[in-house]
Write a protein that binds this DNA or RNA. Sequence first.
DNA 1: TCGCAAATTAATAGCTTTATTAAATAATAT
DNA 2: ATATTATTTAATAAAGCTATTAATTTGCGA
Lengths: 207, 207
Amino acid sequence: MTNQAAGPSFEQTILKTAEALFLEKGYALTSTTEIAKNAGCNQALVHYYFRTKEKLFEAIFEKKAKLFFSALLKIDDSDIPFREKLKRKIETHFDILKANPKLPFLLLNEFTTNPGRLRTLKEKLGELPVQVFEVLDKELQQEAGQGRIRPLSVMDLAITMVSLNVVVFLARPMLDGLGVITEEDYNHWLEFRKRENTRIILGSLNL
Amino acid sequence: MTNQAAGPSFEQTILKTAEALFLEKGYALTSTTEIAKNAGCNQALVHYYFRTKEKLFEAIFEKKAKLFFSALLKIDDSDIPFREKLKRKIETHFDILKANPKLPFLLLNEFTTNPGRLRTLKEKLGELPVQVFEVLDKELQQEAGQGRIRPLSVMDLAITMVSLNVVVFLARPMLDGLGVITEEDYNHWLEFRKRENTRIILGSLNL
DNA sequence: TCGCAAATTAATAGCTTTATTAAATAATAT
DNA sequence: ATATTATTTAATAAAGCTATTAATTTGCGA
């Protein structure tokens, strides 16, 4: 048998399995042995396709990290009021996390325990972050200059945004474990929280 | 030599060393071998005093978890306005984190990767969380009833609070790695962020 | 259908980790 | 001083992990 009943190739299956496990437990706690077992193949095959666990991880991680930052690092030059732009950015970011709820934990875990990952990502992203920062900074200054918002740095706004959006998902295991919210309620609550977060952030701009 | 020049006992040194390492890298990434090396003793001694790595960890973790929640789970029955009470709670919580900046990562990491920890803690805390919740809920309802704040659940308020307070510290390695803030600036920024967070949260109560 | 290349597995080397055991050393009480 | 206990270390078993190698199986074109 060359792969599981002529479905996707083992290479793809391994990739998907690894992705799920890395998201679940992080790099260190996931073994190639376990990946192979879950993918239904021999452990050596994992190394045949990806050579090292590190390379396998990188093939997944960069994509995931870019996904996380995609909403934040998109320049919105549409002709709508600043607050509307910001609202959209928050919601888009939230939606990405909702579709990838384990992403925040993976990034946080890896960036915290392995500073090298951050350096790599920084290189891959190039000048984009700086450019986005500058555009946003200009907008903020302009709004503040016209008295429509209080003065505020891009970084502080970003931190507030990411804080509120991210913790809703980081806290999931705890909310579960404490039995403070049921499975179905959680999904409704998420939508509520998205509105809540935009409300809080937009409100925090007031003079 | 019975211990390092008649200073603190090896038992204490091991405990402190383990604490630092667990906070730095979490349970899984810290080995008893490394703890011993950093403590300046033989690896077997770690097991002599604590028998297993798990028990050593537990001796540290429970204390740390309670510390994190201490500000949140304190009932404030002083005779001051609600907003002032809330402000104090936020600031106290923030100050605890400032004094223990790696606490959030440890808790998050352990609760996420090991659900058992949460169950254990839940038992240890007993009825306290429920009681605090009820008191706070009553206060919130009363304030809302009198039109001083918008209606809001305890859980949502807590999530907002913890989100803003915690991410400032969780994000530290990233801010460092990206070179977006210098060592000394960071400390000033923290104090700014404490004010910022209370401002945002109190502001979010407005109708 | 034969042969070659790709895919897959079995076996294993080399590390690291946790935990235990027995031996050695230090401290203490009698 | 000596017996006893507590502390510390060396050695090592057992297990898991990554990575490689060689052998086996499969797929496929000529």
